[in-house]
Design a protein around this nucleic acid. Structure first.
Lengths: 141, 141
DNA sequence: TCTCAGATGCGTCGCATTCGCAAAAACATC
DNA sequence: GATGTTTTTGCGAATGCGACGCATCTGAGA
């Protein structure tokens, strides 16, 4: 883990600074989808002097480099996750706000097909399914 | 058209005011996905005294009532369209910002299946495919 | 150790959106 | 049509997220 932060900085020609080290560490240790303020909370729990601006700068940097993905679920604010090796989409529980990841090769394939049919190539895509728990007995399947 | 504005206000217990009448009219006459500022532009072309705040309040009201759908394509600002009878999703051309609507029953069905498999019912969903024109000769299909 | 481009913290700015409030307009009632 | 009550409106100020400018600080190569 610590190693990967060092490697990443080297790879992108970034200086391995104290704030950067901590922010990246927090990012890699987070398995949820925190927003910038939440990240700042976690970071300042470790090193209270790190400013919000630096967190913003760091996530932007890492997003440009493809290390992070940015999402905007319903509300306005941006939330981040480390780029997964396998692309996935999200189920968002509207009652709790919790996010579940899923994959569907079939949906991906259909998207590809639709884009091609319209004369386009896919740059990226976003599928968010807002859901609510089934009342009782998930009857079928 | 004019009739439907009257009906809508009655249905939701809203007063049929001058600004409201014009804003709703502009919304129903728009077949694209205007943002609030663009809506305000169109509205003030008819009645220059209507304020931006009123446009904001009206679109929020109509969104709560399910009359409008709000989208946020990439950029920060919200864009609106009247709720279509048939649900559709969007292809966004990243080079021009233009939006193309499409439908895929197959994708809808797969989403339904995924949600159910996780023990959820779908409340709503959003699929945005960001695309770029194919260079030359859309070879297949 | 010295140097200096890159990084940071702080304060400020910009944009989209919301809010508070007094004045104006709508609807129900007479 | 005048009256009273409640909702809307316009205005300007406030908010929230995110970005920026600048002076200061610091990592890492010479």
């Amino acid at each position: 883990m610590e190693q990967s932060v060092t490697d990443l900085c080297r790879e992108f020609g970034l200086r391995l600074t104290g704030p950067r080290r901590i922010i990246m560490q927090v990012l890699f240790d987070s398995s949820d989808h925190p927003d910038v303020v939440e990240l700042h909370r976690r970071v300042t729990a470790i090193e209270p002097t790190i400013s919000l601006a630096t967190v913003y700068r760091t996530v932007n940097l890492l997003r440009e480099k493809g290390v992070l993905e940015r999402h905007t679920f319903g509300d306005g604010r941006a939330r981040y996750e480390t780029t997964p090796r396998e692309h996935h989409d999200h189920l968002i529980n509207v009652e709790t706000g919790s996010v579940i990841e899923f994959q569907s090769e079939e949906i991906e394939r259909l998207q590809e097909e639709i884009a091609r049919k319209h004369g386009f190539a896919i740059v990226s895509h976003k599928l968010e399914i807002y859901v609510r728990p089934l009342k009782r007995g998930r009857s079928r399947t």
